[in-house]
Amino acid sequence: MEKIKLEFDRIHAEIGKFYDKKTWHFMTLNGVALDENTLEVQWLFAKYESGEIVALYTVVDYGQTLPDISDIIPSAVISQREMVDMFGINVQSSEKGLYLDGDSKDHPLRKERS
């Protein structure tokens, strides 16, 4: 697994430059809570032919708002909604309510909960 770090303000542009729909298969959006305040967000891609896996990642805190990449990768919509539910982080044009209630105050996968 190869990891490439992205600058926070250039996430949308970098993914747009990286992603080619016939070469890369977008697997999912993944979040890993590092400590109480910071979160590592990974966009996971696999190559169609060789199965090589690349993770584009960035480290954010819970106050920041992640950009919406569904104009580049339409199937990212559902992963983004899951991120909003699970970590309580804001993602552009994604709202809470995929698994939890829309007004729930719970963030199940944050560090402070476990």
Binding site: M27, T28, N30, G31, V32, L44, S75, I78, E82
Partner: peptide, 8 residues
């Protein structure tokens, strides 16, 4: 982290 087929 579990990514299941139907989810995607």
């Amino acid at each position: 982290r579990i990514k299941t087929p139907t989810f995607a």
